[in-house]
């Protein structure tokens, strides 16, 4: 399991290769990459600032990954989240999961993203031509995380 909080960009193929190399008998690797959006509430975003709570961020991501491991038979998990100033279209988050079977890899990857968005202490500030705003938490993100509890 690797969790990285970093300012610099990441290379998707290098992360994928690391998962492939470290996995024992991978039948499937699922990766998700999140990008900085260029619009918000019909305003053009010029930049985004990512703040986090050092220490608690790593702790909460590790707990989320442990929860995923308890539910599915996954092999390797890798999470990268960038912090600091980012521009539209830049890569912001990466989640990669390897498993012997695709169903577990798909589910675990989505589960980790859903809980990263609702539990890991990151905060986004958007900069637009009209000013800067802290992004509000979305009900849709809470709903996405909540649906996992209905599935036992």
């Amino acid at each position: 399991m690797t969790v990285k909080i970093q300012r610099q960009d990441f290379d998707l193929s290098a992360e994928y290769e690391a998962l492939r190399r470290d996995s024992r008998s991978p039948g499937a690797i699922v990766t998700f990459t999140g990008l900085v959006r260029d619009t918000s509430k019909h305003q053009l975003i010029t930049a985004m600032e990512l703040e986090h709570y050092p220490g608690m961020t790593e702790k909460s991501l590790s707990a989320i990954i442990d929860d995923a491991r308890a539910r599915w038979d996954v092999d390797q998990v890798s999470v990268i989240h960038r912090i600091g100033r980012l521009l539209p279209d830049e890569q912001i988050v990466f989640v990669g999961v390897s498993s012997s079977h695709r169903a577990a890899a798909f589910s675990a990857c989505e589960f980790i993203m859903d809980f990263l968005k609702t539990r890991a202490p990151f905060w986004k500030k958007e900069f637009t031509e009209q000013g800067s705003y802290w992004v509000d938490a979305k009900d849709s993100d809470r709903d996405a995380a909540d649906r996992w509890s209905d599935q036992g």
């Binding site: 912001i92 968005k117 938490a137």
Partner: peptide, 28 residues
């Protein structure tokens, strides 16, 4: 959060604890 774990208003604080106040998270 108290000592980097989400807590509540009823959580008891002890000597040396690390307490943090923040809004709902918006990463990802």
């Amino acid at each position: 959060a108290v000592n980097q774990t989400v807590a509540s208003m009823q959580t008891t604080i002890a000597e040396g604890d690390e307490i943090a106040f923040f809004p709902p998270v918006t990463g990802g």
